[in-house]
Design a protein around this nucleic acid. Structure first.
Lengths: 159, 159
DNA sequence: CTCATGTAATTAACATGTTAAATAGTTGCG
DNA sequence: CGCAACTATTTAACATGTTAATTACATGAG
């Protein structure tokens, strides 16, 4: 059976489409975050800590899809603004324990209604069923490509 | 009919899933680009110019999903490496005309086989039909959210 | 023609992405 | 115990994302 050729044009490219799709969604949330002087990434860190409870930095990186050097910088600003606290991780002196602080929780709760409204509008335009379909496909995509994440397909194909 | 609530957790969030999906795919291409000292964004500029022919900067921004200030910097490095050339745009002194140069074309052609192999591997793991499904859904998502791109859903809902 | 307005590109300033290297603490083996 | 190898985090250096301001040119109303 024949393999597909590469995407003919950049409009039909998977990385480009994922990027533009993300931008289409995030452009709705960005103004809200900007009004509260919180970056996307800072917001993701807050949400992860709120949702999961105290975590070490590596876990936050994993769950928020942020690289460790970026997180180091983000931690500084979030601590300065008292949205999170940094403590020692019990039993391993290398790790740091990150926890959300009351002002962080307050911010999340304050933004909750507007987040809901934005999400509703996105859902209304795109359709609730298609959102679920898309989330399912994305999850399947991620699972299908994981393992040997950083080696090239060429190397994998040479096994 | 009831509206859906916000995604319970960050794993099922549309922006996060799109980000992780893109990362899952790009991690396969990144090593190839790194070996040739080309960034993702530089590569997108080259591909757009190769595919479409000479364009002004705004068009490249649009097609490559790169903001104008980033493109200004990228142009400098691509010109230094002689991958593109910058000329005057006929009939409008504000615009610049970007064109791919022979070394740029050569790079794209040189990488073509490896790109194909990587793409084939991604397709093999995820499934050709699901790739098309995903691309269709992403296109529909983008179309559904466009127009009033930078206003908030709250404002849109207040009409 | 002229000036106010609008647009394309650049610059500025700061946050984040990204890879490599450095630091500090941990673990296991002899 | 003592050291080699490993792991978590940080730092460094540079590219890009992002918004606001600036510059240069274009356009249209009067």
């Amino acid at each position: 059976m024949e393999r597909s050729l590469l995407p003919k044009n950049t409009r039909r490219s998977l990385p480009m489409s994922l990027l533009r799709g993300r931008e289409a969604v995030m452009s709705k949330f960005r103004p809200m975050l900007a009004r509260h002087n919180v970056s996307e990434q800072q917001w993701r860190v807050l949400r992860v800590l709120q949702e999961t409870g105290p975590l070490d930095a590596s876990e936050v990186c994993e769950r928020a899809s942020i690289l460790a050097p970026s997180l180091t910088r983000i931690i500084k600003t979030l601590v300065e603004r008292q949205f999170i606290t940094v403590g020692k991780f019990k039993g391993d002196g290398r790790r740091v324990q990150l926890s959300i602080a009351p002002p962080g929780t307050a911010l999340i709760e304050e933004l909750q209604p507007e987040r809901q409204a934005i999400y509703d509008e996105i859902e209304r335009r795109f359709g609730p069923e298609r959102i679920e379909e898309l989330l399912d496909l994305l999850e399947a995509l991620i699972i299908s490509q994981n393992g040997m994440g950083e080696e090239t397909a060429l190397e994998a194909a040479e096994d």
